[in-house]
């Protein structure tokens, strides 16, 4: 007879399983670990593998426009800005899905991911990053970290699953 049927047929066994459930609950009530990362105070270090906000190295760019062509969401477009001879990519974060195809296809590694994703803009226009100085080529930093959040590193742990240790 399966455990489930024993629970249904045998009231004493059912009481035992009630007790087991309550005991498990109580064990966790007095156990230490918590899963929550209290975000603005602690910021998870996403590591350099993370596909976050995209950054342009304009000096490397050869204006091949492959990034704009491969973009599945049409977020990346080529812009010719006044006073410049060549076209450079700009990105629209209203559309970007962070698939990273543009980074992968760039033949000169002019685009790269940054391990930052918690960015908010005040208006829709602010989400369009043109190849201007301080815009698409900017060095990203998590706003939570800028305002004093402590960076935590994610570590795998047999006891607690994920551990978040401050660096």
């Amino acid at each position: 007879m399966s455990i489930a049927d024993r629970i249904r047929r045998n009231p004493l066994y059912s009481l035992k399983m009630h007790a087991a459930a309550i005991a498990t609950g109580l064990r966790y009530l007095f156990a230490k670990p918590r899963m929550t990362v209290r975000y603005p105070e602690y910021v998870i270090d996403l590591g350099r593998n993370y596909r976050g906000m995209i950054r342009l190295h304009k000096d490397k760019c050869i204006s091949c426009s492959l990034c704009a062509q491969v973009c599945p969401a049409s977020a990346m477009k080529m812009y010719k800005l006044p006073g410049e001879k060549k076209m450079y990519p700009g990105i629209n974060y209203q559309r970007c899905i962070f698939c990273g195809f543009c980074v992968d296809i760039c033949p000169v590694n002019a685009l790269e991911h940054t391990p930052v994703h918690d960015i908010a803009e005040e208006d829709m226009e602010g989400m369009i990053y043109l190849p201007l100085p301080g815009r698409f080529d900017r060095e990203w930093k998590s706003p939570a970290e800028e305002e004093g959040g402590r960076k935590v590193k994610v570590e795998f742990d047999e006891e607690e699953g994920l551990k978040h240790e401050p660096e």
Binding site: A4, M17, A20
Partner: peptide, 8 residues
């Protein structure tokens, strides 16, 4: 199993 699946 204890807290959910085999919870009566």
């Amino acid at each position: 199993m204890k807290i959910f699946v085999y919870n009566p």
